[in-house]
Design a protein around this nucleic acid. Structure first.
Lengths: 203, 203
DNA sequence: ACCTGAACACCGTTCAAGT
DNA sequence: ACCTGAACACCGTTCAAGT
């Protein structure tokens, strides 16, 4: 008699998918482990065979999201001019936040769990961003200076704009009604102007 | 015989204070209504005489924080040059996030509750910021353009930098180890450089 | 506007005994 | 690595009957 393990192939992956679906519907509170099991087609305590507790399951979702995002980032960047690539990244980031706000908040919230998976995925995304910044600097399309610092500036703005938009703090602005993409474009414009001044100084 | 209402003066305020204390200790999950009552010196179900549910109590904390913050903002801004005032505001914002992360996240998270109190307090803070931006623009220390839009840009950066720092996403950057204050200063520098270019164009 | 004391619902988590 | 079925702990919330 053979073992009948892996009927649905990978229970762990099914659990994560099920949990992510519930997360999208109503935030972390809506991720009920009994329901996760039911959605994944397993029993109510099967999740505990794969995750120590609910928090670990949520962290697994976050890690998966980060991997998906860095994959998407790489595709977006390929065959694009640096500044154009930056704009595309900002748009993807904003779109992600709008379409999957719960995943977005979970992924960028504080992870009380010490997970190498998460740290590595985050570092990888940053590395992609830094390399584009360097390319733009080489063309004098962004000001000089530590590329990691410039990347941190752009990431902080993109993150803050999306986070405020999700909380409803951006739409409240009178007439302008700026969205995250607008603010990011503004920043790029200012930075480019500074880069021009840099070049002028050199002469 | 007289009524003995208001022995501790204002139960509602005591409840909010107690809840905020618990919030600081371990986030919203640590705000247990039984414990809130105990800390405030009332019974375990007294909170329900003032708040419909836990969410409403948390919203009251957020509203109080916003009021405290706009009061602080006004004091910081008084008798300061525009750019210096902006730096002071950014520092206060970062310091607030670092010292009271749970309150910070609660205050700027999504309020599923429709609260005029919250909206008004947020609008007031923004108004203070916008007026400083306008003063700086008048001195050509910031680039021209819609002051609300510029204020939104600065607020988004400050918010994003603090939020990432709290999540531990900022310290992970190699050598630079930029903190929110550094990133804000960087932004101000770039903006000022753009303002100079603006002026040069005019000539 | 509080109190005491009991109760209910829900959910994370655990355990026992199976295959 | 799952299953079923039961149980426990915790906590938000409610209710009854008081002052």
């Amino acid at each position: 008699m053979e073992l009948r393990t892996c009927v649905t192939r990978d229970t762990r992956a099914s659990l994560i998918t099920a949990a992510a679906t519930l997360l999208d519907q109503g935030g972390p509170a809506e991720v009920k482990l009994r329901e996760v099991g039911r959605l994944a087609g397993v029993s109510h305590n099967a999740p505990y065979k794969h995750f120590a507790d609910k928090e670990e399951l949520l962290a697994a979702i976050a890690a998966g999201e980060l991997r998906t995002q860095s994959e998407l980032m790489r595709r977006l960047v390929a065959a694009r001019e640096p500044l154009d690539a930056l704009r595309a990244l900002a748009r993807a980031y904003a779109e992600w936040g709008r379409s999957k706000p719960a995943r977005f908040k979970l992924t960028f919230g504080a992870w009380n769990i010490e997970s190498n998976e998460l740290r590595e995925a985050a570092a990888e995304s940053r590395a992609v961003l830094v390399s584009i910044v360097e390319a733009a600097q080489a063309r004098a399309e962004l000001p000089k200076g530590d590329p990691e610092r410039l990347a941190a500036l752009m990431l902080a703005l993109a993150h803050g704009a999306v986070d405020q938009a999700l909380a409803g703090h951006l739409s409240a602005t009178g007439k302008g009604n700026a969205n995250p993409e607008d603010l990011f474009d503004d920043l790029l414009r200012y930075l480019r102007q500074s880069a021009v001044t840099d070049t002028a100084d050199k002469k």
